[in-house]
């Protein structure tokens, strides 16, 4: 796949020959930033990466087996705002090379098998459609069935307005599926990356047994712009960043993307590794 869908937010360099950091504006050869996992070599700003790239970064080479590759949704409401929703969907599918905003499958992380799900923010803002909710719920259920821990990397603006109340109900669907995982005593590791907002953080993404976040990701229920418009409140420094939530006990660890795979492997070594005599007795 081309670099153009590997990361977003850098319109000027869609050809993929160079990478301009959205934060510090420095330009680097594309190959160099691919090596730093699209973290700016200069200022450590974490560029948004697509779902395919995210899986490539986390799963051991050749280990990823996609689930439900052909599962897509429909335009239930016949929705038309400034454009037809079906046209937006077709365009996003072609551009992001995904059926909807979530890629799921099984893979290994430094040898530890896990169910994996990665949101694609470039696909209609990683928003929660019925198809995304279904793909997510199935990934959770496939994981439970295969006795695998479940790892989800969320980058999502929240509800998909064009699917109305069906989008809202995906929050309920995902939490319902997570109940199965909990009943099977399997861990859910939730990784929050920029941005994780609205209905996504107010449902499955906040329910990880362990919650990790990339540095300076924007995370929250209501976006800063809406809060300012609705309440005229002054926003505190660093409002809604990963670090802000970590300081308030809502996120376990803020992890640099370049360390993420190693931290996941360490967690899985404890949570999914062999049991000893004492914890075996609890199984």
């Amino acid at each position: 796949m081309s670099v153009s869908t590997a990361y977003t937010g850098v319109q000027a360099n869609k050809e993929g020959s160079a990478f301009t950091c959205a934060a510090c504006k420095a330009t680097y050869p594309a190959a160099q930033v691919a090596g730093t996992l699209y973290v700016c070599p200069g200022c450590s700003h974490h560029a948004r990466v697509g779902a395919h790239e995210r899986i490539r970064q986390l799963a051991d080479k050749g280990s990823f087996q996609e689930w439900d590759a052909n599962l897509t949704g429909t335009d239930r409401l016949g929705f038309f705002d400034t454009r037809a929703y079906v046209d937006r969907l077709d365009e996003a599918r072609a551009r992001q090379q995904l059926p909807d905003a979530l890629l799921t499958g099984s893979g290994t992380i430094h040898g530890f098998a896990a169910g994996l799900a990665a949101f694609d923010f470039g696909f209609l803002g990683g928003s929660l459609s019925t198809a995304v909710g279904e793909r997510l719920a199935r990934a959770i259920e496939h994981s439970a069935e295969a006795q695998l821990p479940f790892v989800c990397v969320t980058s999502s603006g929240g509800a998909r307005m064009q699917e109305g109340v069906f989008s809202l109900m995906q929050m309920a669907k995902s939490v319902s599926a997570l109940h199965e995982l909990a009943e099977a005593h399997l861990p859910f590791i939730s990784i929050l990356v920029d941005p994780t907002m609205g209905g996504s953080i107010a449902s499955f993404a906040a329910l990880g047994d362990v919650i990790l976040a990339e540095p300076k990701a924007m995370i929250g229920f209501t976006g800063a712009r809406v809060i300012t418009q609705a309440t005229y409140e002054q926003l505190p420094a660093g409002f809604q960043t990963s670090e802000f939530h970590h300081a308030r006990g809502l996120i376990d660890r803020v992890v640099d993307r370049r360390d993420l795979k190693a931290v996941l492997a360490q967690l899985l070594a404890v949570l999914a590794g062999p049991a000893g005599e004492i914890d075996q007795a609890l199984a």
Binding site: T222, A230, T231, F239
Partner: peptide
């Protein structure tokens, strides 16, 4: 949708 709600 307020700051304090988000902080908590």
């Amino acid at each position: 949708p307020g700051v304090a709600a988000e902080e908590r």
